[in-house]
């Protein structure tokens, strides 16, 4: 359902992604691991449609459509969801107001009737329960003053509400303590189903203990240098990224 072909991307004139190839089919969970600066977040931002990133060459097809030609909101309407590593803080907009706007924007795109604020509060209440979040969370300003963990939970809350067919979670585990990680992982698994795709981008193995991917890819210097099964993540945890680097150089 998501096909990335020979993707080259630069930012501020510097080439970051140097030929990424990746295919994710419905029902598959993939993980991309790699050291800092490998280009993992760049990949998620390009897929989300961040205008700061320039695609030099390559294709990203989602449900057979070239999404690189699409606006960020069109990609979201198609069922793509990218959770950000550093979600922005927006003062003055309540989480409820934002989530309601996003929820209705998706419904409008699907030509479904919009929901009122009171109806939406009920829907939101269920998702808050799912992620063990307090109702007061909805009334706070969007990510303003949220702890790192709260911001990540808020991203997963958005995912649970928007119910995408493909989710890319960028470093969702960073900033989460063990309990929060369990709750978030549980929430992600509940949203995931056999007709959906999931790509986890992570630096560490620990999230993968909760959500086990079938495919693990290692990204280094803008390329996927190794792909394998879940055992690859385990090997990385034990031996570190240097081990892969040595193997690639060899």
């Amino acid at each position: 359902m998501l096909i990335i072909k020979n993707l080259h991307v630069s930012v501020d004139g510097k080439v970051i992604l140097k030929g990424i190839d990746l295919t994710i089919e419905p029902g598959e969970i993939h993980a991309i691991m790699g050291p800092n600066g490998a280009g993992k977040s760049t990949l998620s931002k390009v897929i989300a449609g961040d205008p700061d990133y320039e695609v030099i060459s390559g294709e990203v097809l989602y449900l057979d459509q070239n999404i690189l030609e699409m606006e960020p909101e069109e990609r979201a309407h198609l069922g793509l969801f990218v959770s950000f590593q550093y979600p922005v803080e927006i003062p003055g907009i309540s989480n409820l107001h934002f989530l309601h706007a996003a929820y209705n924007a998706q419904r409008k795109a699907k030509e479904e009737p919009l929901v009122s604020e009171s109806e939406f509060r009920k829907i939101l209440g269920e998702k808050l329960d799912l992620l063990e979040m307090k109702p007061a969370f909805a009334e706070r300003n969007l990510n303003e003053g949220f702890s790192g963990g709260e911001k990540k939970r808020n991203e997963i809350l958005q995912m649970a509400l928007l119910d995408p067919s493909m989710a890319i979670l960028d470093e969702t585990d960073s900033g989460l303590d063990i309990d929060a990680m369990r709750v978030v992982a549980c929430g992600v698994k509940r949203v995931f189903s056999q007709d959906k795709g999931l790509l986890l981008i992570t630096h560490y193995q620990r999230l993968l203990d909760y959500i086990r991917p079938e495919f693990v890819h290692v990204m280094m210097d803008g390329q996927i240098v190794k792909s394998g099964g879940p055992e690859l993540a385990q090997q990385l945890e034990e031996k570190g990224y240097d081990w892969i680097e040595e193997k690639v150089e060899a």
């Binding site: 449609g49 960020p72 309407h77 950000f84 907009i93 996003a102 924007a105 928007l162």
Partner: peptide, 20 residues
Amino acid sequence: NYLRSRGIDPDTAKKLLLQG
């Protein structure tokens, strides 16, 4: 861009930010 990535069209996103 953050708001748009959640499916909100640019005009509504601008309105939301202004409202904020």
